[in-house]
Design a protein around this nucleic acid. Structure first.
Lengths: 198, 198
DNA sequence: TTTTTTATATATCATATTGATATATCAGAT
DNA sequence: ATCTGATATATCAATATGATATATAAAAAA
């Protein structure tokens, strides 16, 4: 029931439509921590309305017509209930590290450096965004939310530091030792060569 | 086609069964970056075999019977092809930060401190695991993989540092200023109080 | 001014994925 | 001898994604 709760969380800041919620999740800073697709947002909104956690505002027909939802008392209580539960440990899907984990000895390191430079560009952009937060039209974020932003900054700065160091290490040929408790390195290289020559 | 590739990546280190692959993904260190369920692993193995990326070894009937798969030449080429493609930017689902983002002014900060302490415990455990890597029966990880491990360490150290600082800030009442470009704080508090008193 | 493009807005659906559960076997403990 | 827990595969309902369809308002271009 986590997408539901993140929808309640967005609505706690003020009336929003399904589209608004999606934008909020795509908002690069929120995207650092969360996300959901239209295909889940709209059905969930209906479900949350049926259960009485939220209600739709009468649409004032000024400009574009959209359906704004707001939290009910029940919705607020549910949100606060959820906030009190111990958060589950984060789930991360990171292709860069997955790829690095299966980078074999004689594969081209220039390609890896390109991946790292690309990642650097993206993370720098995100860091700039997070740092210049108030300029980005975000109307309101409370003190505790700011603590989360501080973490996002630190994390990105650490990542950028690691990228620079790593590129240097690769280019100077100063790589860390492989962990090879059972002398598998040689076996693996020959196995791979053999397969590729078949 | 990303789960498929991460399966190929695991197989590149040696013959594995579906169960082995799942264990590898659950292996706390791999779990830092990736994961997949049995419900996707076994069907994908079948599919990969049909397509000719992997093949099943004749099961030697010593001890427990399991089906070990290995990469074909086509599988190796596909893996290397994938490794060369620019990795997509990481997707993170982090309930702690989602919750912090919707922590409202008058909610109990002691609960938040508990969340942070719980997170600290888990991240310390993971850091210990990553640091003591070679002791954990991992047979082989190559140089580039070690660079990824170094990043995992730095990230966790940064997180722990942030947690300590953050708890201190909360307990000393020294919280950062809210971002409130349109004076929404007051409006939000009264709106919430009103709803909860209905 | 008219046309085109882009952003807003909701909805749907095939496909992918999870999480849970079922089933069975083997190794080690009681 | 029996029980428990780890190994191993498989399946499936429920959930979620990603893509696409549709429509309108606003902005830009012609």
């Amino acid at each position: 029931m986590s997408i539901e709760h993140s929808i309640l969380a967005v609505l706690s800041f003020g009336p929003s439509s399904g589209y608004d919620i999606k934008s909020e999740f795509e908002h690069e800073a929120s995207g650092l921590f969360w996300g959901a697709s239209y295909g889940s947002i709209y059905p969930k909104l209906k479900k949350l309305e049926e259960t009485g956690y939220i209600f739709a505002l009468e649409e004032e027909d000024e400009g574009r017509k959209k359906k704004l939802y707001e939290l009910t008392k029940k919705g607020w209580l549910e949100l606060e209930q959820w906030l009190g539960e111990t958060p589950s440990y984060p789930i991360i899907k990171d292709e860069l590290f997955m790829k690095m984990g299966s980078w074999h000895r004689d594969m081209d390191l220039k390609i890896l450096v390109n991946h790292l430079l690309e990642r650097k560009k993206q993370s720098e952009h995100l860091l700039r965004f997070v740092t210049e937060w108030p300029k980005n039209g975000v109307s309101y974020i409370d003190q505790v939310g700011m603590l989360a932003i501080q973490y996002a900054k630190m994390r990105l700065e650490t990542e950028l530091l690691w990228i620079d160091r790593t590129i240097e290490m690769i280019q100077s040929g100063d790589l860390p030792k492989a962990q090879d408790t059972r002398g598998n390195a040689e076996k693996m290289i020959t196995r791979r060569r053999k397969t590729l020559q078949e």
